[in-house]
Design a binder for these strands. Structure first.
Lengths: 226, 226
DNA sequence: ACCTGAACACCGTTCAAGT
DNA sequence: ACCTGAACACCGTTCAAGT
């Protein structure tokens, strides 16, 4: 620990540049993500945060994508573990909802989770938890294995999808465009869309997520693998 | 028009720079995407293709994301319409499979489809088709409306997910990392994962997609909306 | 081994100026 | 109105050189 030779708060109160480690790098990246969003988690920005040049980071991380993946896994550590009481279905829904909300609050991370192939320890923990709950519900092994993928994929995609809907977001317009396109569908050429524009757009995200999770569970439970 | 003082096919046979239009811009973008991939569809690259500067494109398109969305919608026009024969389930699966394969062949586009909020005419056509098929199957309106979202989301996410698995891909490693992480799961700490690592990884993409679509349909069919 | 300054090869977007 | 050169403010990654 070389953080020794400093007189009490010398130059500008900076806490004596700690040695660079992978953990420190990831921690800095998480901090920047929480305060400024994932789009600021760039090699250059994090390097600056750590008082070095971008080239230095490549000692600990293969590329920028790997850094984003590490940030994601860090966050996955905050998924709430299954509660003690309730049916397996309720507990399963709770875990997935907790996961979804984590991402719902971090739009850009949700989008990156969809595109990255997570493989960190916290992601593996999450898979184990979901498999255990499905086993508890008596879901056959093969269906459980394939089902976990579908469940996580849906929760992630939903978070990424609704991420743009928040007040201050850049891409609110995209939503508005789709909304009006559906609402203004011509009953002549697109009758079903016109008739269902209400339900297509209706429902708070939470209600839709909850319904989708239950529908997914029902499907997984009742559809044998080949 | 300063392109006048040319003798028949002067300088390098270039076919007399056609007037710029939105359609021409999108066509150029689609061409570049098909030949070089979406990551080459940048404002600068397309501008170069059209013999102009990047600033000129902003007359027809608000930003790069809108250009990508236009390319996506163009491609959605190639989804196969439902066949005449077969049950509604079979026809529904075929449409979704056709959609998924379109994206499976274009990794980067699949990823962008997941993150963009499509609202083009071809996307609306697709929604109409899916709603009609679900109606034919007797799926209640509310469930059909919410179900369409889940079905499209799954097909898109699956395409994006398996996109990286192709031979020449950059991110093959991501897959390999997850694969070995699952296969090497410690039976002590992650027993379910260790036991199911086979099924978790098994199955050709087509079989998994087909199973998931059927599971989704079953779930949608048997889960009433609130 | 670890670290880094500097460079390479790109981006998207804006804006003042031209036609 | 439409178009554009040039600039602004960024990127990721590599590499030769330093310690």
């Amino acid at each position: 620990m070389p953080a020794s030779s400093d007189t009490p708060s010398s130059r500008r109160e900076r806490p004596a540049k700690p040695a660079l480690t992978r953990a420190g790098l990831v921690a800095a990246a998480v901090a920047v993500m929480e305060t400024e969003g994932l789009h600021k988690v760039t090699m250059r920005r994090i390097a600056q945060e750590l008082d070095t040049g971008p080239a230095s980071l490549y000692v600990y991380v293969r590329n920028a994508a790997e850094l984003h993946a590490a940030v994601l896994d860090e966050l996955l550590g905050r998924v709430e573990p299954p509660s003690e009481d309730g049916t397996w279905r309720e507990r399963l829904e709770k875990v997935l909802t907790s996961y979804a909300h984590l991402l719902l609050d971090r739009p850009a991370l949700a989008r990156s989770a969809l595109v990255a192939r997570p493989s960190g320890p916290h992601y593996l923990d999450l898979i184990e938890i979901l498999l255990a709950l499905l086993a508890e519900g008596g879901v056959p092994d093969g269906q459980a294995a394939w089902g976990v993928d579908v469940l996580l994929q849906h929760a992630t995609a939903t978070a990424a999808e609704h991420a743009g809907r928040t007040p201050g977001a850049r891409d609110r317009e995209d939503w508005h465009t789709l909304e009006t396109a559906l609402r203004d569908a011509d009953p002549g050429t697109r009758p079903r869309t016109a008739a269902l524009s209400g339900p297509l757009l209706a429902g708070p995200p939470d209600a839709r997520l909850s319904w989708a999770i239950q529908a997914l569970i029902n499907g997984i439970l009742h559809t044998p693998t080949p």
